[in-house]
Deep mutational scan, measured.
Amino acid sequence: MASDGVVVEIGKVTGSVGTTVEIPVYFRGVPSKGIANCDFVFRYDPNVLEIIGIDPGDIIVDPNPTKSFDTAIYPDRKIIVFLFAEDSGTGAYAITKDGVFAKIRATVKSSAPGYITFDEVGGFADNDLVEQKVSFIDGGVNVGNATPTKGATPTNTATPTK
Rank of each mutant, 00 (worst) to 15 (best):
M1L: 06
S3P: 09
G5L: 10
G5I: 15
V8I: 14
E9A: 07
I10E: 05
G11N: 14
K12L: 05
G15A: 08
S16Y: 06
G18R: 07
T19F: 06
V21N: 15
E22F: 13
F27S: 08
F27D: 11
V30R: 10
P31H: 03
K33S: 03
G34Y: 04
G34T: 06
A36C: 05
C38S: 08
C38W: 01
D39C: 00
F40K: 02
F40Y: 10
Y44K: 01
D45A: 08
P46Y: 06
V48Q: 10
V48S: 05
V48R: 06
L49Y: 15
E50V: 08
I52S: 08
P56C: 05
G57W: 13
D58S: 10
D58C: 04
I60W: 09
I60N: 10
V61A: 11
V61E: 04
P65T: 14
P65I: 06
P65R: 13
T66K: 05
S68Q: 09
S68L: 09
F69K: 01
D70R: 01
R77M: 02
I79S: 01
I80D: 15
F84D: 03
S88I: 03
G89M: 03
G91D: 15
A94L: 04
A94P: 02
I95Y: 03
K97D: 14
K97A: 11
G99D: 13
F101S: 06
A102K: 14
R105A: 13
R105E: 05
A106Y: 13
V108T: 11
K109M: 07
S111T: 12
A112S: 08
P113E: 11
Y115C: 06
Y115N: 06
F118T: 05
F118L: 06
G122R: 00
F124R: 00
A125N: 01
D126Q: 02
D128R: 10
Q132Y: 01
K133M: 02
S135P: 04
I137L: 13
D138C: 05
G139K: 05
V141R: 12
V141A: 12
V141K: 13
V141G: 14
N142V: 08
G144T: 13
T147Q: 08
P148C: 08
G151K: 14
A152L: 12
T153N: 09
T155C: 11
T155E: 07
N156M: 06
T161S: 10
K162N: 05
